[in-house]
Simulated assay, not measured.
Amino acid sequence: MKLKSILLSFSPFICLLISGYGVFSQETNTPELYLEPIFHVNYGDATADKPQSKSWANQYGQWLIVGDADGPKLLKKETTAWASQFEVNKAWHNLPSRADVYNKDDEAHIVLVGECALDVVQITYSHQNKKYEHQWKESLPIPQDCQSVETATITRDSKNQFWVSADVDQRIMVWHSINGRDWSDPFTLADNINADDISLIVTLKNQVSAIWSNQNTQSIIERIHIDGEEPNNWSAPIIVQQGDNNADDHLNATVFENGEMAMVTKNSVDKIDQPQFVLRLRDKEGRWINIPYENLTEERSPSRPIINHVESGKIFEVHAVKNRGNNLYFISVNEIIKKKDGWEFREIIQLKTKIIGKNGDVTSSKASFLPNEPKLIFFSDDLGNIYSFDLNKL
């Protein structure tokens, strides 16, 4: 693939490619690893849904929230297995199962997504009891005409105020809370989107960014809220990219220590030998650059990419792949490498399971990985099995 590139250097950590394609390096003998489940639930695709982050790490351990038939489940990594946190999970009985987590210090705030319901719960780590304890649950106001909510994400800004973003039918909406418990009515950021579109909300330096897809206009769009301003005071829509079928409802992002952001998305091109994904890079001034990568081939159909990075270090992209020949799935783990003339996407391992069925819905932490700590990613199958892999093993 011919690479057209114009490079601008915004920081020592990252250089941005103005236009063209990323180079994807798929090794002919990529290592394969078969994984055994770490946990089982009575709920298929338990790590869904895009673009949610369901795990976190702190001085108390490694944690994960997965869906189950009777509500979400909080798990903790023990020495030899992952253990269900009984008392928290009892408090969450029959709550919506699809979760996105914002963790800070001893507290975690989680938005739980139902068909036309959004609940926010808080858990706090008890030093005395050495476990998380459920504190409260609050339901966000939902428009009475709601038909469906696909997914939602939660974040916290520099003023310690909270934000939730979600799709409600053909609208993108945000909710605001000063304390994480008392929530505003929703504010509409966009309407007339496709019913299949979703959003993502991300904390940047002194601002939050809400980003969504609009497949009706073939657009990826952003609006910015400056921390401390009135909750409904958002910037005009910013076009990240428009046209060429570049929009689909797959979004995931990571924020670098210098304030820049990288987001991976799927497009709707869906043509053999054409890129399925786009790496989107945002500099500190809000300028976006879009780099298509990862071709759809006769054999490989990639989907649902996520991105995370090690603090001031490696950038990882992970996505599911369906083998179009045998209908088996695997997880492709890639490193994104900055080159002088652009970017390289290098597949470094394929994670497989022994089931005949779907694997996917990769998730990791909202925060970046710490250099000397486990770097866990998770995915699930449609039989209720949960899988984990530590990127430190690469």
Rank of each mutant, 00 (worst) to 15 (best):
E335S: 03
N94R: 11
Q276K: 15
I221F: 07
K77N: 03
W234H: 03
F379E: 00
W56F: 11
F39W: 04
W183E: 08
D382Y: 13
N326A: 05
F10L: 11
I336G: 04
C116T: 15
G342Q: 10
K375G: 04
S25Y: 13
N58E: 01
N252K: 03
N194Q: 10
K104F: 04
D105P: 00
R300K: 15
F389A: 06
D248R: 15
P37V: 00
K271R: 15
H176E: 12
T28P: 00
G71T: 04
N103F: 08
Q350G: 03
W56L: 03
Q59M: 03
R300Q: 13
Q26W: 09
N323T: 03
I336C: 02
L118G: 06
A320T: 03
E294K: 15
N267Q: 11
D197I: 05
E260Y: 13
E150Y: 12
A262C: 09
K358I: 00
I355S: 01
S53D: 03
N267L: 14
G325L: 10
I291N: 14
S235Q: 02
Q215I: 10
H176L: 01
K77M: 02
I306A: 07
I348T: 03
K393E: 14
W92H: 04
I224T: 01
K354Y: 01
A195L: 14
L328V: 02
D248Q: 14
T265L: 06
V111L: 10
I356F: 10
N94F: 11
Y387P: 01
P31W: 13
D341T: 01
S25P: 00
L3M: 07
A99C: 01
A69P: 02
D382S: 09
L279P: 08
N290Y: 09
D145Q: 08
N252G: 05
L33P: 00
N192Y: 07
L204T: 09
L74Q: 00
G71A: 02
F86Y: 13
N103T: 13
E311Q: 15
A46V: 04
K2M: 07
I386N: 02
R171D: 12
V255T: 15
H176P: 00
N129L: 06
I238S: 06
L328Q: 14
V310I: 13
Y102D: 07
P51V: 00
D381F: 01
L7F: 03
L376R: 12
W288K: 00
Y387E: 02
G67V: 07
E347L: 09
T80K: 15
D185C: 10
